[in-house]
Design a protein around this nucleic acid. Structure first.
Lengths: 370, 370
DNA sequence: CCAAATAATTTGATCGATCAAATTCTGAGT
DNA sequence: ACTCAGAATTTGATCGATCAAATTATTTGG
């Protein structure tokens, strides 16, 4: 069962094969009667372009390469799944697609990138988990390969580099918004649970908390120091750190956390200390946050994906090309959204008022019999 | 900067272009001296095959299509991320690759499948979240498109259909293993927390619990009924259901749960009831299970991915083709692995003995400054 | 009506790799 | 030295779509 080609359609519609191509790609230059005739033949034959042929002829693959990070990254790991999904949707809307690859090391990743690029299989890459001095980025820039990173480089010399396109979540603004909300709701001692410094992202988010506390409560440096703790990004680590904080007597009346892992740890520690009504806000809006009723800051990954494509495609918006130094916008900060959940979703606090929700209709490996 | 072609290599090595192709694809038919000369030219020029050209000529894409499910599926959602990663690794090992697509509905999914198949962009599909009477599968079989499902169809008429290839986790065996382990560790009243019946997967897993209880403890039907509860797959739902169970006086001395969501809910209920040492085992080995120290049954998704490719490639193992009715193995059950975690990882229980673990080195959007 | 300009369509060629048949080379046997 | 068979290499062609130039058809203005 071979697929029909442009030649088959041309024969059926009694036109040239190039007219078939014109009907599909530049229909405005085709006479209406001819257009109708060809479209009818396309429908009758069920014709679809062979995409490998198109890619070969057009010298572009319309494909974005994304590495699927193998590291099970605690409860935040699902975020990449969500981001990849958003990218895939946005690619589809632009007649493009996402190709996944894996790599065992940074060197392997560069090799995979080279292979995909030189095999004409990928036009551009979207990178995550970036770092200052990242070798991948140096290679991509040196070899004129289009790319966007999700995340800022945080170095003095590379944040404004127009060759390094990046999209990031404005964590400072998101945490500031959350802190302001808690203060507007009556909190007077909002605590901060963050990662050990220095951390580009972590410190940026902490700045949001500091700004809100200073602007809204006139908090002093000493007060800020007393209300903040640092923990590695694990639930048990955060539980221990926040438990220490709560035992120390410097009781916060709300907590803002740099991640949902920290927030879950804080929730467990607060519950164990009997502080069952302590408002806690995390960051990432992971499935766990949703499952246990944690308020959290959502990364609005769909908007990140849109911005990623807008940067990649540049002003003209129709094709991926290497960006010149003055080719327009290179960086985009996205303001995240605060998702509030009500305390009566928190059975940890001993409440018994839960509504029965709809059954989970799907699990990727579960089936329902009809 | 155009990439070198076979013609360039041929000119450099003073051979024909077909000899260049032979060196790459069937090196055993090339004379050693010629082989060396061509390989040297390939290396000097940095030549790589153009994969669109290869696909067009070979009439195969070497690509597997996978739909990325958009539904945030509670704490189990990260499993698809992990499965896609395993598939991508196995594809890479076979010089194949995984192409993602999204779809807004089952009808849209069939249309995307059709488009990818007819555009010669995907040779075969891997489907998840399957159901008896699934329209996707009917379409794929009718149109002779190769596919494998991760999950059994569970219908009387389709479980053994050789045209419907499937790989699944042996949930019955996994739960049986977990229950046996708890019994061997001294439990006499192992409780079951499962999903409402009927559910193909859920009932299969429950059977494992029943068998272990009967064979090892001689449990009666009445005892089994008294020790089992059903809950929708959500943390708060499970918490409520297990709390009721624990209040009813039929105290289990251990719990086996159909999923990690149910297990987390059970953990919260047990903690609230002061049963801080109640052994609980979940299913899926999600990041949450790991984060809070839950024992869980791991789906060994890498082995699922291997099996998926073995079924797709069939006995010859070199190319994807539609399977004939007697073309060999069509189904594969994979025995999952029990992952035990020690109770001292559970700060929920008020223990204070936690080791400080290594810092979380990566989050997909976090950067480290050097 | 004719000529020029524009619109519409067609023809020639290309993209880069591999299939398949033809040709050349090499070694062994007589 | 010659012949034959098998190995090695080359040549002709193909895959299916689109680029780009050439040709044809149509419209407009004098």
């Amino acid at each position: 069962m071979a697929q029909p080609t442009v030649e088959d359609v041309a024969r059926e519609a009694n036109v040239s094969r190039q007219t078939v191509s014109n009907v599909i790609n530049t229909p405005s230059i085709v006479k209406p009667a001819t257009l109708d005739r060809v479209q009818l033949a396309i429908a009758r034959l069920g014709y679809r372009p062979n995409l490998s042929a198109r890619r070969l002829r057009q010298q572009k693959s319309s494909t974005i390469g994304v590495r699927l990070d193998p590291i099970r990254n605690g409860i935040s790991g699902a975020m990449l799944d969500h981001f990849v999904h958003a990218l895939t949707e946005q690619a589809d809307a632009r007649s493009m697609r996402v190709l996944l690859f894996t790599a065992a090391s940074p060197e392997d990743e560069i090799e995979q990138i080279r292979s995909l690029h030189e095999g004409a299989d990928v036009d551009a890459f979207v990178l995550t988990a970036t770092a200052h001095g990242d070798r991948r980025i140096a290679w991509l820039i040196e070899n004129d390969v289009p790319f966007v990173t999700f995340g800022r480089p945080w170095g003095i010399d590379d944040m404004d580099d127009p060759k390094h396109l990046w999209v990031d979540i404005d964590g400072r603004q998101g945490i500031k918004d959350a802190t302001v909300r808690l203060i507007d709701n009556g909190a007077k001692r909002v605590g901060w649970v963050g990662w050990p410094r220095p951390s580009g992202t972590g410190d940026d988010r902490r700045r949001g908390w500091e700004e809100a506390m200073r602007e809204r409560l006139g908090a002093s440096e000493a007060e800020l120091a007393a209300l903040s703790v640092e923990s590695y990004d694990g639930v048990s680590e955060a539980t221990e750190t926040v438990a220490d904080m709560l035992r120390s007597g410097e009781l916060p009346d709300a907590l803002v956390c740099a991640s949902d892992s920290l927030a879950l740890g804080a929730l467990i520690a607060a519950s164990s200390a009997g502080l069952t009504d302590l408002p806690i806000i995390g960051f990432d809006n992971t499935p766990v946050a949703e499952a246990v009723g944690l308020s959290s800051i959502d990364q609005v990954l769909n908007r990140v994906a849109v911005a990623t494509f807008e940067l990649l495609l540049g002003r003209e918006g129709n094709s991926i090309v290497v960006r010149g130094p003055d080719a327009g916008e290179s960086h985009r900060l996205i303001r995240p959204a605060l998702v509030l959940r009500t305390p009566n979703h928190l059975p940890l606090y001993g409440t018994t008022t839960t509504q029965r929700t709809a059954p989970a209709v799907r699990n990727h490996h579960r089936k329902e019999t009809s």
